[in-house]
């Protein structure tokens, strides 16, 4: 397999986080994630880190799996870290090599920016790992329903998002097969000069587009055959039950925000 995308793939461990109603889980997660970006000092960063590690631990999803699904974003984190460390110049100089200077201020900023983004990502990815596409749809549907009154196709947007997540691994597998087939026919992407590489992307993209259209066609047939007509009359297999677990989740999220504010 040429590459694997694990972004947003459901992983079942039946933890409390899995049982938590998605209509409560998602707003709580959004609050936590937004709060992470207000982190400004070391104590707050420590609290943020503790909270995100707690969320991951609570989900009982193996750490490897959680990190695996944010791996594509490691590059972004590395760039943020490097830019701040290398280009921010306040505080005392730690190391100075020619024109490049690493200062205490730069190092701290790099750590802070990369740290709070990591915390937010950990929370976000854990929520995706513990929520099935169908329940994500239901949750977004419920959350966006006020906007539906303004004419926004809230349910349809939610459905499209969840189907996208459902088909990420399918399309990734197919991309892998296409890349392998091209490699066998001497059109490897990782060989030759820049021009050659750009040219070898074309067949992959064309074949992938064709396969995307085929899936879309089949999927529309499947949705029609199963009488999917938007969210209006739909019922739900699981009782959406807002009870003790949900109350605890809301309380903990509020406590986190309050604690963060107190530490400022």
């Amino acid at each position: 397999m040429a590459f694997r995308l694990e972004l947003g793939q459901y992983y079942d461990t039946r933890s409390p986080l899995h049982r938590l109603d998605a209509r409560v889980k998602i707003p709580c997660a959004l609050v936590l994630m937004v709060a992470m970006f207000f982190i400004g000092n070391a104590w707050q960063l420590l609290l943020g880190a503790a909270a995100s590690v707690a969320v991951v631990a609570l989900s009982r999803v193996p750490l490897r799996r959680v990190l695996g699904s944010i791996r594509p974003l490691f590059v972004v984190l590395a760039i943020i870290l490097a830019f701040n460390v290398l280009f921010v110049r306040d505080g005392n100089a730690l190391v100075e090599v020619g024109p490049v200077a690493i200062t205490t201020g730069g190092a701290w900023r790099g750590l802070l920016y990369a740290g709070r983004l990591t915390c937010a990502l950990l929370v976000g990815t854990t929520i995706l790992l513990t929520t099935t596409p169908a329940r994500l749809t239901d949750a977004f549907d419920a959350l966006l329903s006020p906007l539906a009154r303004l004419g926004l196709p809230a349910h349809e947007i939610a459905m499209v998002c969840s189907l996208t997540l459902r088909f990420v691994p399918v399309v990734a597998d197919e991309a892998g097969a296409i890349l392998d087939a091209q490699a066998m026919r001497g059109g490897a992407l990782d060989e030759g000069g820049m021009g050659h590489r750009v040219r070898s992307v074309v067949p992959v993209v064309v074949a992938l587009l064709a396969s995307g259209l085929r899936h879309a066609d089949n999927l529309s047939r499947a949705l029609d055959a199963r009488c999917y007509e938007g969210g209006t009359a739909r019922t739900h297999l699981y009782e959406s039950h807002v009870g003790g677990l949900e109350a605890v989740a809301v309380a903990l999220s509020c406590a986190f925000v309050v604690a963060l504010a107190l530490l400022a």
Partner: peptide, 15 residues
């Protein structure tokens, strides 16, 4: 259409 067998079987009747 979804990631759990039983949810998928329920999709039609839900609709």
């Amino acid at each position: 259409v979804t990631s759990v067998v039983e949810e998928d079987v329920a999709f039609g009747p839900e609709n």
